[in-house]
């Protein structure tokens, strides 16, 4: 009997601790709401989202976040042009072309590279990519949206490649064999059979890549230059939401409107990434059902 009580206590401890991640997720949401929403007592929600001037320390201050949101979207979009083709191409190469030995070397390598801290990419962007961009395009500064996109794209490539490769490895070999057996060559098999059946898995990888790129902070903080204007070209400095939060929190005073506005930006970021993650989750659960797997 004593043992039974002990068992029950252990079960309860595990159950309570298991809810920690839910608690933290809810906690993050509540924190962002309580700290961010006070902004909207002073500034209307529309003026925040659509306002084009971000001068939080002026008197009177302006909290128009559109330039920041647009910068985030701009840099992320640019990064996609780099990491989607490279990432998916690499994944296809690893899964479909590389032999067993080559793959067992490439995959861990890609995973290791995916773990390099973002501050190192940012540093690399500052000291190597930015001067190069400045020289090639003859710009006043190398710290531009283009630099941010490039570095962010390079950084996200291993992540996308690794996730897409996982999706490809879920495609049963029998699919490939069936296609090869009717006389299709490997390229046709890849394009007509493998890619379509891994399609939603690959799109999950891309969506997660987008979500990470939007939320990435240090890289963009260090290489995008930081001017809060609506971007018109890739060759000008921009200021995404993440780097705004990171660089301005130091000077914002606790409890003041500026402080609240940065949490409001956090709120926008949080819900944007949450949105992408939920879509990815939805697609991947359907994908797994399609290939006849459990969760």
């Amino acid at each position: 009997m004593k043992q039974k009580i002990k068992e029950e206590i252990y079960r309860c401890i595990f159950a309570v601790l298991a809810f920690s991640s839910l608690v933290f997720l809810v906690g993050i949401t509540l924190t962002l709401l309580t700290q961010g929403l006070p902004l909207f007592r002073e500034v209307s929600f529309m003026n925040f989202l659509a306002g084009t001037d971000w001068y939080p320390t002026y008197d009177p201050p302006d909290f128009g976040a559109l330039p920041l949101i647009a910068s985030s979207a701009f840099v992320t979009l640019g990064a996609m042009f780099v990491c989607v083709p490279l990432g998916i191409g690499s994944a296809l190469y690893m899964n479909e072309i590389a032999g067993y030995r080559q793959k067992s070397f490439l995959k861990p390598l890609v995973e290791i590279l995916a773990g390099i801290p973002s501050v190192i990419y940012g540093f690399f962007g500052m000291v190597a990519v930015a001067p190069l961009i400045q020289r090639i395009f003859n710009l006043p500064t190398g710290l531009t949206a283009l630099t941010g996109s490039l570095v962010l794209g390079i950084m996200a490539t291993p992540t996308v490649a690794s996730l897409a490769e996982d999706a490809l490895s879920f495609v049963p070999n029998s699919f490939r064999e069936a296609s090869l057996a009717v006389g299709a060559n490997r390229w046709q098999t890849l394009v007509k059979v493998v890619m379509p059946s891994a399609g939603s898995g690959i799109s999950t990888a891309v969506i997660l890549g987008i979500s990470r790129a939007i939320g990435e902070t240090m890289t963009v903080l260090m290489v995008t230059g930081g001017s809060a204007v609506i971007p018109r070209s890739f060759f000008q400095p921009v200021r995404p939401m993440t780097s705004t939060i990171a660089s301005e929190m130091g000077e914002a005073v606790f409890g003041q409107l500026h402080y609240n506005s940065l949490f409001a930006l956090g709120l926008v970021l949080f819900f944007t990434t949450l949105f992408f993650n939920i879509i990815a989750e939805y697609i991947s659960s359907r994908y797994r059902l399609k290939l006849g797997m459990g969760r």
Binding site: S21, F24, L25, G27, I28, T31, L32, Q35, L208, S211, R212, I214, G215, E216, T217, T242, I245, A246, M249, L262, F263, G266, L269, F270, T273, L274, F276, N277, I278, E281
Partner: peptide
Amino acid sequence: INNLAGVPSVVFGLF
């Protein structure tokens, strides 16, 4: 758990 994994790191900083 999946969604917590996707929260941007700067938002953790805010929290």
